[in-house]
Design a protein around this nucleic acid. Structure first.
Lengths: 217, 217
DNA sequence: AAGGTGCAGTGATGAAGGTCACAGGAGGGG
DNA sequence: CCCCTCCTGTGACCTTCATCACTGCACCTT
């Protein structure tokens, strides 16, 4: 492939945000086939049942991953951050399966989209890509197990606090902009329960409440 | 490596139970380094916090995978069946991490244990091994998501029925031998709740109850 | 300024399931 | 056969959280 097909911007982004992707030829291949994509806060990137055509390398922002049951009940799973990728994409695309999850931009997000057809080949040819993929799978599994721990073993107040902390981290800000109803959806709880628990947390000095706003202390 | 190092029994087992592991040289490498291991019903194969030294290819029986929190509350996650492997093992060993899960033989179980040091190399050299590993990760992720669905969205009666069905499938028998207390542990529920729900299921004609025994109808 | 809309707070009530207490039956060992 | 232990069944009560109903406030629109 001619050198002018290589996107210098993508190359720089990969080098900066993905130091573990070490092989130069791999970096260059990514720069040749990767496309920079941008999503605004709240924009849906992928929904349940859609086919995945790209694997995302997240550069900036963060992505909320969630799950929904047949009755429309929703449950937040985890955030993807810069330097991470979506493990679900790998096999989704490698086996042409529909997505099991929904991903929505939590903030304005920039990512490099890599067409899925390269995945397989790179896994065999580039050890650092293989490691990256495996590590990513492992992190996601761990995250899912943590989620299971939360739901199975913890009560709503603890889950709520954890949720707020993760959300604050994903947004890199102690201030969370969300309504109680939105939080309730993510935790698969009722709005009233969330309101009451938040008031409780406020009394305990953990948070400060405002309209559409929660300050972590 | 000399041909006499090749364990013919292992070779045959791999060919029979893992047709997707297609490359002959890979089959032979497995036969050279894999060890047949046996576990009795109830025997613990791996506990939380232990280091994993082998990747198991399950040949016969089934393995129960579960999770425990710091207070000793337990939660059943899923069963591993012949033809499957433990995804947790891959990265656990590749990154020398402690196990996050506990595995116990649900029935008398036979598996081929492969020392973890070969994993990485085989991933690059054998496409069918790479596919096997990826597929295995994907299946486990799906299973974890199903578990999350169950805990988050379903009530105890539904979870109990699902659990009984999975357990019957793992044991290849409509009759389940377990006390209500054991089931309660697996579902992170109270023994009394399980007893009452089982009675309910009996009234509805779903099961027949005996001492240490539940018959699925 | 007036009214509308969406968000937050709160009480009442009920269902699911945990906890405690105890009874009764099955089965095994001496 | 008797006793002991383990398993199961059941009633009473409590906590957590969902649901319903309603209030009041903040902010926006006109």
């Amino acid at each position: 492939m001619a050198i002018q097909d290589l996107n210098q911007e993508v190359l720089n982004l990969v080098r900066k945000h993905y130091p573990q992707i070490a092989e130069r030829p791999l970096q260059e291949e990514i720069a040749q086939v990767g496309k920079i994509m941008q999503f605004r806060t709240g924009e849906m990137i992928m929904d349940f049942g859609t086919y995945v055509k790209i694997v995302p390398l997240i550069i900036q922002g963060s992505i909320k991953v969630s799950r929904e049951d047949e009755d429309g009940n929703e449950l937040f799973l985890y955030y993807l951050q810069p330097g991470e990728t979506c493990s679900m994409s790998f096999t989704c695309c490698m086996m042409n399966k529909k997505s099991e999850i929904r991903t929505v931009a939590e903030e304005d997000t920039v990512l490099i989209g890599i067409p899925t057809r390269y995945m397989d080949d790179w896994m065999s040819r580039y050890p650092s890509w293989k490691n990256f993929v495996m590590l990513s799978y492992d992190n996601r599994m761990l995250e899912l197990i943590r989620t299971i721990d939360s739901i199975a073993f913890k009560k709503m107040d603890e889950r709520l606090l954890e949720y707020l902390q993760k959300k604050a981290e994903a947004n890199q800000s102690r201030t969370i902009n969300a309504t109680h109803q939105e939080i309730a959806y993510d935790l698969n709880a009722s709005r009233e329960a969330v309101s009451r628990l938040l008031k409780q947390l406020e009394k305990e000095g953990e948070v400060e409440l405002g309209r559409n706003r929660i300050e972590l202390l």
